[in-house]
């Protein structure tokens, strides 16, 4: 038996919104420690790694580990019908063929029950090694969204160059070029609004703009985002979710021939 209850539907809505455009279907791996999902986009260039820790749920029970193959679009559509403050309980029998969803309003005067058919998802599981990153940039997630959106009007690749002085995002396209530099915040009252740049080694790497734009749509998950870059490893973009876990995106670079 698997059962997981979140106090407020809002967080699940935000999580599903952030992954469902990138990932059509995936396996929710449910175990005693929580729920995880690892899925690549269809071109195998980017990967979503989601972790929802058991302690982040109001109630959590998973007697034996199970894989729930889910169409993320279908799940997203159903969860969207819940009120933001509704409690949501996910459930599945050990050998069941459906994922049950129960929404309960805060007043307990409305209860909705849905079932989604499970599917066989033949997803390749990749082993993600723990990487040593040369650069870690923490910045407001809204700023990251703005920068990727603004540069996407010009070019399909963004070069991210980072030194101790700042991080530069630049692009070139048929119509011209553009670049945006962010400098480390000198003094900030609100830590969430700070730009913090940690540099072991300066680095410059190119990435496909369209994926950065996709990732940056997760801004609702956290006011801050971290970009982790290293030579010979994919970019890792992380949106932490307090006690709940995280959504991480990995993106392979574009290399010059």
């Amino acid at each position: 038996m698997f059962e997981a209850r979140v106090a407020q539907a809002e967080i699940l809505k935000k999580i599903l919104d952030s992954v469902r455009e990138l990932v059509e279907q995936g396996n929710l791996d449910c175990s005693g420690t929580g729920i995880s999902l690892q899925a690549m986009d269809s071109s195998h260039v980017s990967l979503v790694a989601l972790l929802l820790k058991s302690e982040g749920f109001e109630r959590y029970r998973c007697d034996r580990s199970i894989n729930l193959g889910i169409n993320m679009q279908s799940l997203g559509k159903i969860v969207k019908t819940a009120g933001n403050h509704d409690a949501i309980t996910l459930s599945s029998e050990d050998k069941g063929d459906v994922l049950g969803l129960m929404f309960e309003s805060t007043e307990q005067d409305k209860v909705s029950n849905y079932e989604i058919k499970l599917m066989d998802v033949d997803a390749e599981q990749l082993a993600i090694p723990v990487a040593e990153y040369s650069v870690c940039v923490r910045m407001p997630s809204a700023e990251f969204a703005r920068i990727t959106r603004d540069l996407s009007t010009i070019g399909d690749s963004v070069l991210i160059s980072c030194t101790k002085d700042g991080v530069q995002f630049s692009t070139t396209g048929d119509t011209g070029s553009g670049s945006i530099v962010l400098r480390q915040s000198s003094s900030v009252d609100d830590e969430k609004k700070a730009v913090v740049i940690e540099v072991q080694e300066p680095i410059s790497l190119s990435f496909a703009t369209k994926f950065l734009v996709q990732f940056s749509k997760s801004a609702a998950l956290n006011e801050s985002v971290t970009l982790n870059l290293g030579d010979g490893v994919p970019l890792m973009v992380e949106y932490p979710m307090k006690e709940m876990g995280y959504v991480r995106f990995y993106l392979a670079p574009k290399l010059s021939n």
Binding site: M40, S43, H44, V45, S46, L47, E124, Q125, L126, A127, I128, P129, S157, S206, A208, G232, V233, P234, Y250, A252, P253, K254, L255, S256, N257
Partner: peptide, 14 residues
């Protein structure tokens, strides 16, 4: 000219 690398070149299969 840039070439898009795939993730498999970095991450092994489990």
């Amino acid at each position: 000219v840039c070439r898009q690398i795939q993730l498999k070149q970095y991450f092994g299969q489990e």
